[in-house]
Structures are given as C-alpha cells and as structure tokens.
Amino acid sequence: MLLFKCKPTIYNFEAFSEFAEEFEVGEGDLVLTLSFLYDKVFKPLNLKCNYIFQDKYGLGEPTDEMVNSIFKEAQEFNYKRVIAVGGGTVIDIAKLMTHSDVSEDIDLYGLFTKKIPFNKNKKLVIIPTTCGTGSEVTNISIVGFIKKNTKFGLAAEELYADDAVLITEFLQTLPFKPFMTSSIDALIHGIESYLAPKSNAYTELYSLRAIRIILEGYLEIAEKGKEYRNEIMNNFAIASNYAGIAFSNTGVGAVHAISYPLSGKYHVAHGEANYQFLTEVLRTYYNMDSEGKIKELNTYLSTILDVKDDAEVVYEKIDEILGNFLYKKKLSEYGMQQNDIDEFAGLVIETQQRLLKNNYVPFDKSIISSVYKNLF
C-alpha cells in the first residue's frame, strides 16, 4: 500500500528576483499572475517572458468561463513552462494550462469527469501568494461550473507541479482577511488529513505539525496584534506547505465537500466557506464515533489551546480564537435559503464522492442536511 509521496521539488526564497535569476525566467515562459503583482514585482525586472493576468477575466474562485477565456489567450503564446504566481485561483488554472490541448473549445467538464485524458506537455512552477491552499504540492485543481452551481475537482498525477516555490516577499503584502481565510483553509487541510482513512505515520508528521504552527501563530497574533503576522509569515507558509503535503496523500473530507455548494451558488471565498463548517463537522464526527481517532485529535488540540480535554470545550475554543479575527456568519447571512438545505445536501452526495470517501465516518444525505440546518 502506498503511504506517502511528495512530487514537487520545494524551494524557498526571500524575493522573487532571486527566484527569477536561479530559474532563468525568460523566453518560453508563460506567467499566470495578477495585474497588481506585475506592476509591483515583475515589471521592474524586465523579464523576457509572456504574461496572462487572471483578474482580467474576473475575481474570486475559478470558474469554467474564466478558464476558457484564459485558455483562449494562452493559445497566442508558444510556451514550454507555466509559472503560476498567485492564490488558489491562479494555481488551479495554471495546472490545467500544462495540458497539451489548451484551447477555448476544450470540453472542460469532460476533462474534470475524466472523459478526456489529461496529457501534460509543459513544465509547471507554482509560487503561492497566500498561506493556505497548499495547492503548490497537490495534484488537484478545483473549478466552479456556473450552470451547475457547484465545484468539481480534478485529481490527476499530471497536475503536480515540477517545482513549488515559497517566496516570503509575496506573503508580506497579504491583507489580513485573505491571510486569515487562507491560513484557516490550511488548518482545515491539516485536520481533515489527520482524520482521513488514508492517514498514516508519515502524513501525520506533516498534518500535526501544520496544525500546531498555525494555532500557535494565531495565539501569538492575538497577543501581539494583527501586524505581528508579518514577522511569522514564513512559518505560516511552511505550515500551509506541510498541510498540502499531508492532504495530497490522504485527501480532505466533509468540511470541503459540504462547503462547495455554498461557494458555488453564493460565491463565498473557499477558505471562508470552509471555516463555517469546521467545528460543526468535527462535532458531528465526535457524536457519531467519539472513541476513534478524533479523540486523539481533540487531546492534541487541547494541549495547544491549553484547555480541558473535552470535545465541546475544544471546539468552542477554536471558534473563539478564529472568531476574534473573522466573524462566523449564519449560512442565511450569505443569502442561503431554507430550500437550499436539501438541494445542497443532494448536490454534495451527487458530486463530491471523491471527498466524502475521505471522511472520518460516513455521511449520508440526512447527516449533511443536519449540518446545514444547524448552521442555517
């Protein structure tokens, strides 16, 4: 049985200019990034590469329409290497741009349902500018399909980056809310990886360390102020990377699966959507099987948070800490309607089996509905 792998080679630089020199960025490279980063970081270097700006085609999560528009522009360039510099949206799209048949006419839905094989013929370098997705070390791309009101994930060996690069310069310009939503996402990656059926002694080294770094970082920021995050930002980048390595081997579960319809229909940012469901899913897991691995997780969390080793106390403490930085809304505050509850639960069952199989305990439609109802 396969226990563990880490596909990309991992690098760490203080500044992008150091990376550009070592990787000889220039002709044959296509950089997918954001326009404000170009003006601030790329333009002064006068690199002889081509650029596509993701924000030209919309903001927020990647959609099928956004991907097809970027694919159309990519056809104008002859490139051998894709360099992704951005958050989860940029990274998820860049992974698809290594496909041999990048064009606006490709059946993107067929690609995600594996009716079309993924043929990689270009190199991929990923440089995250947030500290949460961990996507630089995973083989997963997530895209929202507008007419279906949900997201689909494609997992394929060909989606691994050749190189994953952490650059502190980018993270220190991250505003506080994106910092929180992305780092909460990394925390959830660590937790879901630890509880997943495929979790093992190797992945636990990464998932548990990621959880500790992130929670201890939050406690320090609560004590020393929001700006203190910039002094420990590289810790969060490494923790996100650890969590990404962990869940790339084990997968994530119900927190992600249940959040997708909320993101898809009401355009809630990925990390923020996951945040809404974290402790409710953990509480549901614990109520269904309190003597399994979740008991070990709760003990571990209680030692970091310095609270009683009691599930409800631990979950309340997590909500308290995260709530100090990011308000936890009721689902109805996003516009969710009562009749969405059963519709969303059915959509999760129908479209997210890839994730649900990674649950700590099995969830059926009634359990998923109850999670939505409790948070509505």
Rank of each mutant, 00 (worst) to 15 (best):
E158A: 15
N121Q: 05
T181C: 02
A164K: 05
E169Q: 15
N121M: 05
K177C: 00
T113G: 11
M180I: 15
G153S: 15
S135A: 15
L154H: 06
G153H: 01
P178Q: 03
A161R: 05
K114I: 09
S141W: 08
L166A: 10
P128I: 05
K151A: 12
Y109R: 09
Y160V: 11
G144Y: 10
T173C: 02
F170V: 09
F176Y: 12
K114F: 11
F118D: 11
Y160A: 13
F118L: 14
V137L: 10
I126C: 12
I127M: 06
V143A: 06
S182T: 15
T150V: 10
P117C: 13
K122L: 02
Y109D: 05
S183L: 02
T130C: 08
T173V: 13
N139P: 04
N119K: 15
G144E: 04
K177S: 09
P178A: 00
E158P: 04
F176I: 13
I184P: 00
M180Q: 09
Q172T: 15
P117S: 15
N139V: 07
S135Y: 05
L171M: 14
Q172C: 13
I142P: 00
L124N: 12
D105P: 01
F176L: 12
P178L: 03
T113F: 05
T150E: 00
K120W: 01
L124A: 12
L111D: 07
L154K: 07
G132C: 04
A161L: 03
D107F: 00
I126K: 08
L171T: 14
V137T: 12
T129Q: 12
L171N: 10
E169S: 08
T133I: 07
T173P: 01
L108Y: 04
S135F: 02
L174F: 04
E157K: 15
K148A: 13
I140Q: 04
K148C: 05
F152P: 00
V143W: 00
P175W: 07
P175L: 06
G144Q: 06
T130L: 04
F170A: 07
A155K: 08
F152H: 13
V125I: 15
E158D: 13
L171C: 10
S141G: 12
K148E: 14
P175D: 06
N119P: 05
P178D: 00
G144F: 11
K115A: 14
K147G: 14
L174E: 02
I106P: 02
A156E: 15
E158T: 10
T168M: 11
L159D: 03
T181D: 13
D107E: 09
A155N: 09
T168A: 15
N139S: 15
K147Q: 14
I146Q: 02
N119T: 13
F145G: 06
G110L: 09
I126R: 06
A156T: 13
K177E: 13
L111H: 11
L108G: 03
T168K: 15
K151T: 08
L154I: 14
T129H: 12
A156Q: 15
S183Y: 01
I142S: 04
E169I: 11
N119Q: 13
P128L: 07
G153N: 05
D105N: 14
E104T: 09
V125F: 08
A161Q: 07
L124R: 11
T138Q: 07
T129F: 01
G110T: 08
P117M: 14
F170P: 03
T113R: 08
F112K: 10
V125S: 08
L171W: 13
T138H: 08
E136G: 11
F170D: 08
I146W: 00
F152Y: 14
I126S: 08
